[in-house]
């Protein structure tokens, strides 16, 4: 529809919209997060929902304890290897359309605990992530920013065509491999369909550092 005509109509009190806009508006305006905290970031997540930062302003205050009723997973905190299968399982149990915010350095890459033997180096090894928020922990404002970013992302989605979101594409998976506990590590250590090891060019790396450190 012609944008000029649409704004002209709106001035006359007639709201014209497309199904896509309506659909996206509906989805982005009532994101129900899963009531699910892992570590330090969860406290900031709670603080975001409290009176001062008031996440309710963005239509996302309804924290659901059950994954069946939620459409946004905020991975708030360090994902340990012992916890990773449960996180993936919870994600699998959420109905489509579903989104993931990876909150904090730990959920992105393991953060300060990256060297730990029981720490998963980023939840994106097993499930797709929509928005990453750096910080340790990110401030409530950062979480709100992530919400706005996610809303914008939803708003820009097309319902048809090759770029349509995953839940409208029957060929795309909505469930992902749940890792199992092995003798030394999780099996598999990553879901290769979701995440590939970014290979560093080892022939050049480290040459500049010789003698330093």
């Amino acid at each position: 529809m012609d944008e000029q005509l649409k704004s002209e109509l709106r001035r006359q009190g007639v709201v014209a919209t497309s199904l896509q806009e309506l659909y996206n508006w509906g989805r982005k305006s009532s994101l129900w997060p899963l009531n699910f905290g892992l570590a330090c970031c969860a406290i900031e997540m709670i603080a975001t929902t409290m009176a001062r930062y008031d996440l309710a302003r963005f239509g996302a205050e309804v924290f659901r304890p059950s994954p069946r009723q939620a459409d946004l997973m905020i991975v708030a905190g360090t994902v340990t290897k012992k916890m990773a299968p449960q996180v993936v399982r919870l994600y699998n149990q959420m109905p489509e359309p579903k989104y993931v915010i990876s909150m904090g350095a730990c959920a992105i890459s393991g953060g300060p605990f990256k060297q730990g033997y029981n720490v998963l180096k980023g939840i994106d090894r097993y499930i797709p992530v929509d928005v990453y928020i750096p910080g340790c922990p990110p401030r409530p404002e950062a979480l709100i920013d992530a919400f706005l970013m996610l809303q914008k992302k939803i708003d820009e989605q097309y319902l048809t065509g090759p770029t349509r979101p995953r839940h409208l594409n029957a060929d795309m998976p909505s469930e992902f491999i749940v890792p199992e506990f092995g003798e030394h590590d999780l099996v598999p250590t990553q879901n290769r369909d979701v995440w590939q090891v970014p290979l560093v060019n080892i022939s050049n790396a480290g040459k500049n550092e010789s003698g330093s450190d």
Partner: peptide, 23 residues
């Protein structure tokens, strides 16, 4: 237990005394 076992004690063995403080 153990769902948030982040290996503080192991990591600290490779950190300086000052570096342990933020942990």
């Amino acid at each position: 237990f153990g769902y948030l076992h982040r290996n503080h004690e192991k990591i600290a063995e490779n950190e300086s005394y000052l570096g342990c403080m933020p942990y």
